[in-house]
Amino acid sequence: MSEQDLLAPAAVTTLAPAEDRAALPLGKDGLDRYTRRDLRKEEIAIARQFHGGRMWPYAVAAFSCFAVWLSFFPLAIMGVLNLPLAFVLSCIFCVGGYVTSHEAMHSNIGRPGTKYRWLNEAVGAVSTIPIVFPFSMARLMHLEHHYHTNHPEKDPDYTDEAPNMWLAWYKTWYNRQPGVDGSIHHYKRILAEMGTPEARRALVETMILQLIFMGTLFTMAWTGYAIEAALIWWLPRHIGLSYIRFFLSWAPHHPREGKMGRYENTYVFKSRVGHVLSMGMQYHLVHHLYPGIPNHRTKEAYYALKPILKARGVDVSPL
């Protein structure tokens, strides 16, 4: 071999990479595993600061709202109830009840084995009665949603998906139609398929609560209080369920298709109705990352986590 052959460019190029590459393999987020691990450690350290806190206001809100709502029935029969005001309050209680029950679903009011566990279960049980949605079913289905967020078959809330806001509102109503496999019908089917003792209990409780709901409406209606029953329970339940499904299910998870990763299954979005009226759902991503952070602290936690979320590829531009 001549000296000229040894110095030929072809011999050099076989030793160097074909293209400019990072020294460590990068994931689809553009980060190597060491960077991802460091970011995760930092993320956990920040998130830990926002776990816990005062949870008694959730319990007070749940029990007082439920008591006020219950009082509407005898007051309406006695004819001393301001029906338009009761209607508005009932709608608020239906929506707000889901927020308090949501904390109980994640055991944020009392962990299993702690002295406030009974309170956690009681808050959950009373909170969802106005929307005729037993806590046992709500908890099982919500946890399934967390385990399989945006999975077309396994996420119980996947049926809320719609291409735009208007169709999403329509779908909240459509999914409740008797022959449609959406919303509570979809939940009942999943529970029947699960077949566990907890699922069977949830199905029985759902049946009992639905019968109590219908029994109350029928009794009130045939004794001359149909309008009162409609404005205290029937309409607020429908309005509340649509509102809940839009803000808690569609808005933070749309579009769902193919978005199942930890940092991509929930979006940060700017709500037109603000933080309180959207029930803090603008920061729902924080809840999916750390369900132990209570709802009222997710906003604060989001801004603390924002640089890390941005580094992980989350679109943080809306907020």
Binding site: M214, L217, F218, A221, G224, A226, I227, A230, W234
Partner: peptide
Amino acid sequence: FFGIGFIAPLIAQL
């Protein structure tokens, strides 16, 4: 049942 148990009296009372 909902039709006769609730909607019917609701219509009448409205």
